[in-house]
Design a protein around this nucleic acid. Sequence first.
DNA 1: CATATCTTTTGACATTGGTCAAAAACGGAG
DNA 2: CTCCGTTTTTGACCAATGTCAAAAGATATG
Lengths: 189, 189
Amino acid sequence: MERLLQHLTDMHHIDEALRDDLRNSFRELRIPKGEFLIREGRICRHLYFLEQGCLRGFYNLDGREVTHWFGFENDFVTSFHSFTTREPAIESIQLLEDCILWEIPKSKLDELLAAHHKAERLLRMAYEKYYIRLEERYVNAQFKTAPELYGRLLERMPHIIERVPLGYIASYLGMSQETLSRARGRLSR
Amino acid sequence: MERLLQHLTDMHHIDEALRDDLRNSFRELRIPKGEFLIREGRICRHLYFLEQGCLRGFYNLDGREVTHWFGFENDFVTSFHSFTTREPAIESIQLLEDCILWEIPKSKLDELLAAHHKAERLLRMAYEKYYIRLEERYVNAQFKTAPELYGRLLERMPHIIERVPLGYIASYLGMSQETLSRARGRLSR
DNA sequence: CATATCTTTTGACATTGGTCAAAAACGGAG
DNA sequence: CTCCGTTTTTGACCAATGTCAAAAGATATG
C-alpha cells in the first residue's frame, strides 16, 4: 500500500483526506504466475495497481494471441476499454510472475473521483502519460524495421528480456518470433 | 462557440459558471488551407477546437513525413505531447481546408481546471475516448492487411476520401501510396 | 481550349518478413 | 548427469509490400 501511495505522491501532492480514502478503498491481492487477472468476454470492474511482478495483456485476433502490453512494478492495470465503458473485455490479462496487486472497484473509484478534485486530476495526469507512451509506440511500430524496434525496446526496458518469453515480446513488437530471433542475432553480431 | 459548448454538453452536464468561463477563455480563429497550426520544434501552448474544416498531424521520421492523425469538425486539436509537457513539438499540424477554430491558451485552461472540478472530469473523459480509439487503431495497424485497413477506414470515415489526398491517407494507414492505390483497385473490382 | 501542375495509377523489381519444419539450446526433475 | 519438455534459433521458401520510374488522370490558370 505504501508503494502505491508513494507512486501517487510522486505525481502530485495528496492531502490527508484523500490519502485516508485511498487506504480504505484498495485491497491487497496475491496471485500466482499463470493465472488470469482479466478474461476476454467478462466485464472488468476493477482497477489494479501492480506492486510486485509482471503481466501481459493480449487480444485474440482471428484465433491468434496478440500481446499488446506488459505491466511491471508501479503500473496501473485494467482492461481499459471494458473498465471505462462497462462492456465485455476484448482482451485478457495474464500473470507472467507471482504478483502482489492492489485492487479498487470502479464504484469506489467513482466515489473517490466525485469527492476529490485532486483524484480527478491525478487520474487525468495518469492518462496523459499513458497516452503519450502509446502514441509514440504507435508511430514507431509502423515505421521502424524489426532490429530498430528490438533495439529500442532494449533501451527502454532492458529487464524485459529476462522476465518475458521471446514469443510474447515478438507479438508485442508486431513481428513473428522467428523474425525477432533473427533481429537479435544481427544485433549481437 | 455554440458548437463547442454543445459538444461539451453532449459529453457531460455543464453548469452556468463553467459555461461563462469557457466563453471568456476561447478565441475564434480563421485560417486558410495549407497553413500550419503547429510546427515541429516550437512549443505548443494552445488547445484548439475545430469547428469547421479538416487538418492533419504529421511526424518527420528520418526525413519522410508520416501523417498519424486527421482532425475533423468537433475534434480537439493540439500537439498533445508538447502541450502537456511544454517541450518542443515533435509533430506539425497543417490545414487541409480553410478552417474555423477556437483557441485556448494552456495557462487559461489550467485556471479552468483548477477552478472547476467538472472541467477536470470533462477533460479526463475526453482522454478516455481518445485513448480507446488510439488503442484500437494500434492493434489494427499491426495485424491487418492493406485492403482490410482501407476497408475499415472507409466504414469509419467515409467522407475522408473526398477531403484528404490519398498520399496522406496511405501514410496514416502505414503503407505506401502505391500499395493503397492497389488495395483500392482490388476492393472496387 | 491549351498548358502546367498536382494527384493517382500501373509496371518491374528488390526486400522484408511470414510460415512451416527441424535442429539446437536451455531448464527443471529425478 | 540424464531425460524430457519448453524455448529459441536456423533454414528454405513464398507472399506482401516498398521503391523507383513512367504513364494516365484530374484540376487550375491564362
